[in-house]
Measured scan of single mutants.
Amino acid sequence: MDETGKELVLALYDYQEKSPREVTMKKGDILTLLNSTNKDWWKVEVNDRQGFVPAAYVKKL
């Protein structure tokens, strides 16, 4: 969790967005987890953008 109590995830792999609903991340990025109710796609925030990334590409910290 960060200082505001939000849950964080670590990008395990690079991911290039394939639609406007997704976000690009690089391996090693720390992202804010917004929603993990879907087992396949998690909603995150990175670089002031919100979108989805494959759940298998990130790990909760």
Results as ranks from 00 to 15, higher is better:
42 W>L: 04
51 G>H: 02
58 V>M: 05
54 P>Q: 02
25 M>Q: 01
3 E>P: 14
33 L>C: 07
41 W>V: 03
28 G>S: 03
28 G>F: 05
58 V>F: 05
39 K>T: 09
58 V>N: 00
23 V>N: 04
3 E>S: 14
4 T>A: 13
34 L>E: 03
8 L>V: 08
5 G>I: 12
6 K>Q: 11
10 L>S: 05
6 K>L: 11
43 K>S: 07
53 V>S: 00
57 Y>F: 13
31 L>D: 00
7 E>R: 11
19 S>V: 05
33 L>T: 01
32 T>N: 08
43 K>R: 10
34 L>C: 06
1 M>E: 12
7 E>D: 10
57 Y>K: 06
59 K>E: 13
35 N>S: 12
42 W>E: 01
26 K>W: 10
45 E>W: 07
42 W>F: 07
57 Y>R: 05
48 D>Q: 12
32 T>L: 14
18 K>Y: 05
26 K>F: 10
46 V>R: 15
23 V>P: 01
46 V>Q: 15
60 K>T: 08
18 K>N: 10
60 K>R: 14
43 K>V: 15
6 K>R: 13
10 L>D: 01
35 N>Q: 10
20 P>Q: 08
36 S>G: 11
26 K>D: 04
2 D>H: 14
17 E>C: 12
52 F>L: 08
31 L>M: 14
42 W>K: 01
40 D>N: 13
46 V>Y: 12
12 L>R: 04
32 T>M: 10
36 S>E: 13
2 D>L: 15
41 W>R: 02
36 S>A: 13
9 V>P: 00
54 P>H: 02
44 V>N: 01
8 L>C: 10
40 D>T: 13
8 L>P: 05
24 T>R: 05
51 G>N: 01
44 V>W: 01
8 L>Q: 10
50 Q>I: 14
1 M>D: 15
60 K>M: 10
36 S>C: 10
49 R>W: 06
52 F>Q: 03
13 Y>H: 10
49 R>F: 05
18 K>L: 09
30 I>F: 06
47 N>W: 09
5 G>W: 11
59 K>R: 13
40 D>P: 02
47 N>H: 12
17 E>W: 05
25 M>D: 00
51 G>E: 02
28 G>C: 08
23 V>L: 15
22 E>F: 05
30 I>Y: 06
16 Q>A: 13
